[in-house]
């Protein structure tokens, strides 16, 4: 049975190298390889890989534009990076046989690799980066005064709303990290359980399901980040105007 916490493989002083961390390095290696491959064969007449990357880039950029308008150029790198990183991290855990390679410890198989996003540290790190980036972008776009006016006001009603906003910022981090962790970790458990029932063919539909779950979760995380960034980079009074316009 897969444990909540990622299993340590090696201990380097105070730093414990876990199987999820090794998977993160695997994801890094894949992404760096992708960057090198794309840059090496970059030309005006694109190859298959460049074509895929260009279609993805253009698609994501137009999506960011439809959500964030003029601020798309700032939001796009975060949105796309979260999507690519999480997608690859989710799917590395689905490589057939990856969780079967490891070592035994107390009659229990410890795999060398485990989907990076099935480790809470990874999802929390991603959620924290998302939250910090959102707030820094908000300050840069609408200014410190506009940013603080969202949370603090002399008007007691707005002050209360500000308190709710601060609470929602904390819950955003919790929901982002636990949603991703929960879905991918649950997938790992489902696949492990199904494989123990019958190892051949039977896990295939579940594997396909997890492929879709991995894609959907990557999209959900990145889309939510983009939405939060779009909301927080909109000045508070303009947001109120938009709300009233929609109400009319």
């Amino acid at each position: 049975m897969v444990s909540f916490a990622a299993e340590p493989i090696v201990r380097l002083g105070f730093f414990s190298v876990t199987n999820a961390f090794l998977d993160t390095l695997l994801v890094d290696a894949f992404l760096i390889g992708l960057i090198i491959a794309v840059n090496k064969n970059m030309s005006k007449i694109p190859g298959i890989l460049q074509n895929i990357i260009e279609i993805m880039t253009e698609g994501f950029y137009s999506l960011a534009q439809s959500v964030a308008g003029e601020r798309a150029a700032k939001i796009f790198p975060f949105f796309t990076s979260f999507f690519i990183f999480i997608l690859v991290a989710n799917w590395t855990g689905l490589i057939p046989g990856i969780s079967a390679v490891g070592f035994y410890e107390d009659h229990k198989l410890i795999p060398f690799f485990r989907a990076a996003t099935s480790d809470f540290n990874v999802t929390l790190a991603l959620a924290l980066v998302s939250a910090f980036a959102t707030h820094i972008m908000s300050i840069n776009t609408i200014g410190i005064k506009g940013y603080l006016s969202r949370y603090f006001s002399l008007n007691p009603i707005y002050l209360f709303i500000g308190f709710l906003e601060i609470t929602s910022e904390i819950t955003k981090v919790i929901s982002l990290s636990f949603r991703l962790f929960g879905n991918i970790f649950a997938g790992e458990i489902v696949l492990g359980t199904v494989a123990t029932i019958f190892a051949f063919l039977f896990p295939l539909p579940f594997l396909m399901l997890e492929v879709v779950v991995g894609l959907v979760q990557a999209l959900v995380f990145s889309m939510l980040t983009m939405a939060f960034m779009a909301i927080l980079t909109t000045p508070h009074h303009e947001e109120a105007k938009e709300v009233s316009t929609h109400a009319v």
Partner: peptide
């Protein structure tokens, strides 16, 4: 849930590096 502050910081740094590489070179 396996929370480890050192691992958390390592993962944050790791993602920031990957983010920079993707932004700059992709």
């Amino acid at each position: 849930f396996g929370f480890d502050p050192v691992m958390l910081v390592a993962q944050i740094i790791n993602f920031l590096i990957i983010f920079y590489l993707l932004k700059r070179f992709l």
